[in-house]
Amino acid sequence: AETPLEPGATAGAAAGPQDALSLEEILRLYNQPINEEQAWAVCYQCCGSLRAHRPPRRVRSAAQVRVWRDGTVSLAPDAGPDSGKMGYSHCTETEVIESLGIIIYKALDYGLKENEERELSPPLEQLIDRMANTVEADGSNDEGYEAAEEGLEEEEEKRKISAIRSYRDVMKLCAAHLSTESEAPNHYQAVCRALFAETKELHTFLTKIK
């Protein structure tokens, strides 16, 4: 099947710029960080669209992450001066994941002072740690190979969780965060759809006030 450039555009024939908000716009409008559920959702949705829409793009700013009305999340091209070089080419999947992890963390950290740190739930912190490839610094990435007596399936599961190498790995971890993994596509799409709708509502309200 042919893949469109913007996943959000698949929802309607006439999807325009007003049907998407960048993560940066969302952060600025609320003037506060995203919550943890939104972070899981943006992560899952973004990896979903990255899986379907290649070539890989490194995420340089929250302005590139676009949340669409229908709850899909896509990555806009980097408009920076070096876009077309680092933005598109010679960029591996793990590099894209790393950059996405950093952007998601920054969205969770939005507005906090340099000497402050947000307390994240351990699973989300672990996800970002693994995405951003910062795990070795805290010594917690032991690859899980000490469990030689464990079954192969368990070992394989551990390997998958300890080493993120693909968008699919990220999505699996996001799905595992839910009580019912099979609900991940609908749930995370609904969270992103709500994020878009609530931000639009706030925007309309603030515009009226002005």
């Binding site: 960080p33 950290d109 000497n115 402050e116 740190e117 947000r118 307390e119 740690d129």
Partner: peptide
Amino acid sequence: KGKSLYKIKPRHDSGIKAKISMKT
């Protein structure tokens, strides 16, 4: 509803914020 509720702690040298900062 819709509010981000989170705890803030002092930034730690070995915390995730420091590790992310080193990457950027």
